[in-house]
Design a protein around this nucleic acid. Structure first.
Lengths: 255, 255
DNA sequence: GGTTCGGTGTGGTCCGACCACACGTGGTAA
DNA sequence: TTACCACGTGTGGTCGGACCACACCGAACC
C-alpha cells in the first residue's frame, strides 16, 4: 500500500522517505531544524531541486515551516501543524471533483454529532478540571449575538464555533479534519448565503440552535447534544445547498 | 484562515492557485492533461522549478499523476484519487507527533461505528438495488477464514475488510479518511501483533466479531451494528496498544 | 559604549543542460 | 503491399550553477 515495493525511487521521494524515517526514529522532532537544503542534497546525493520538491510537500502537509534569512528562526523547522495540510487536501480534492460536497457534509454531520455526544459525556466527569473547556465556544456565541453582523462575519464565527467545540474534545485529528472539511466546502457555504431569503430569521434560529447544543452539553445530555447538533447542521445545509445534484455523470479518471 | 490575505505570492503557490482556479472554473476536470511544465512555466511567468514544486504537491495530494514519455498517457493528468493524499498526510503527521495515535484510534472508532450504523440503516431500504453492497466485505471475510494465514496477512485482510465497509457506505470522503487513518497507525498495528499472546484465539475472536457486525448490518439492526463495531475496534486496540502513554511533555512547536 | 556596515548563510527563484522514456512516423526490407 | 525497425520528438526527472532578498552577527568605526 505504501507504493515502495520495487519501482520508483524518485529523488524527491527519497528525500521524503529519509525525513520520515528520521522522524520515526526520533532523530527529528517538532521544533528541530532541518539541515539546509544544500547540505541535505549533498547528504542524500540528490540535487537541490529534488530536496526542494520534497520540502514543498512537507510544507503543504503542515510538517515544516520555512523562513529565509539567518538566526534561530531561519531554515526549515519542523512544526506538526495538523490542520494546514488537511485543509489544502480537502479544498483541492473538492476543486477536482474528487470529494463530492455531499459526502463532505455527510462526514461533517457524523463528526460533529460525535463531538457533541462526547463533550456531553465528558461534562459529567467528576473532577471538573477534566471536563471540556467550553469557554472559547461561549465567547464565540457571544460575539455572534452582535446585532450588526454581516452574514459573512457570522459565517466565520459559526465556523470558529464549531471548530472550538472540536478543540474542546481534545482530539487533534478530529479537530484538524473538521477544519479541513470546512475548508473544502467554504466556497459553497459562502455561495449558499445568497440563497437565504430571510437572513435575520435564519441567523436567529442558528443562534438558538447553537445555544441549545451547548446547553445540552453542559447538562451532560449526550443524546440531546447529538441530535441537536445533527439537526442544526442538516437543517442548515438543507436550506442553503446550492447544487443538490450529487454527482453528474463525469468521465471516470480511470488509470 | 486561508493564509492568502496579502503577503506571500511565492511562485510555486501562484502555480497552485492557478490550477485550483482552473479546476473550480471547470476548465480542468479529471482526465484532462495539464499543459507541459515548460509551457505552464512560460504561461505563468515563473521558472520550471516552481512549476514542478507545485506539481509535486498536487501529486502527493492525489490530484494528478505524471508519466514521462509521449502519447496520450504521458504528461500530468488530473486524477482525483481521494485516498492517496490522506494517507501521506496521516502517516507523516503521525511520524512528526502532530497526530497522537490515540486520537487517530478515537476518530476511527467514531467513523467505523457511524459507517456500520449507516449501513445497517441503508440495508432496510426497500429497493434492494439501493442497499449497500456487502459482497466485497463478504469475500474478504471468507479469505480471512483460511487456516494458514500469517498474522500480517490477516491484518492486511482486516484492513481491507474495514475499508470495504466504508466503500459500501458510498461516502468517498469517509472512505478516504478511513484509509488515511489506517495508514497513520499501520506501523503501530504491525508492532502490536507481537504483543498478542495467543494469536489463534485472538484471530478467532476477530473473525467472529467481523461476522457479527456484518450480520447486524444485514439485519438492519443499526444499534447492534454500531455497538458491535465499536467494541470490536476498541477491544482490539486495548489488547495491542504498544504505547498507552498519550502524549509525553514535548516542547511545543509554536513559532 | 553605542552605532553602523559589511560578511555570511539561509531559502526563493530562475536558467540551461542532460537523461530516460514512449510514442509516431517514416523509411526500409521482405 | 505489408511488416518491421530506427530515428525524431516531446514528455517528465534530475542536476548544477547562478543570482536575489533576507536576517542575523560581528567587527570596525564614531
Amino acid at each position: 500500500m505504501a507504493s515502495d515495493a520495487s519501482a520508483e525511487p524518485r529523488a524527491w521521494e527519497q528525500v521524503l522517505q529519509h525525513i520520515e524515517r528520521r522522524l520515526l526514529d526520533g532523530e527529528l522532532a517538532p521544533g528541530d531544524r532541518l539541515p539546509g537544503e544544500r547540505v541535505l542534497a549533498a547528504e542524500l546525493g540528490v540535487g537541490r531541486s529534488s530536496v526542494r520538491e520534497a520540502l514543498r510537500v512537507l510544507e503543504v502537509l503542515g510538517l515544516i515551516r520555512t523562513h529565509a534569512g539567518s538566526g534561530p528562526t531561519a531554515g526549515a523547522i519542523i512544526i506538526a501543524t495538523p490542520g494546514g495540510g488537511m485543509s489544502a487536501l480537502m479544498r483541492l480534492q473538492v476543486a477536482a471533483n474528487g470529494f463530492p460536497v455531499a459526502d463532505i457534509v455527510a462526514m461533517r454531520l457524523v463528526l460533529e454529532a460525535s463531538v457533541a455526544d462526547g463533550l456531553a459525556a465528558a461534562s459529567a466527569l467528576v473532577p471538573q478540571t477534566d471536563a471540556p473547556d467550553l469557554e472559547p465556544a461561549d465567547r464565540l456565541l457571544d460575539a455572534m449575538d452582535a446585532p450588526d453582523l454581516a452574514p459573512a462575519e457570522f459565517l466565520a464565527l459559526d465556523a470558529a464555533f464549531h471548530l472550538a467545540l472540536a478543540e474542546a474534545s481534545g482530539n487533534q485529528v478530529i479537530t484538524a479534519t473538521m477544519a479541513g472539511l470546512r475548508s473544502g466546502i467554504e466556497g459553497y457555504a459562502r455561495a449558499g448565503l445568497a440563497t437565504i431569503a430571510d437572513w435575520h430569521a435564519t441567523s436567529d434560529r442558528l443562534r438558538g440552535e447553537h445555544r441549545g447544543v451547548v446547553a445540552a452539553i453542559r447538562a451532560a445530555d449526550a443524546a440531546s447534544a447529538r441530535s441537536r447538533m445533527h439537526d442544526h447542521i442538516a437543517g442548515y445545509y438543507a436550506e442553503t445547498f446550492i447544487d443538490p445534484a450529487p454527482a453528474p455523470a463525469r468521465t471516470p479518471p480511470s488509470r
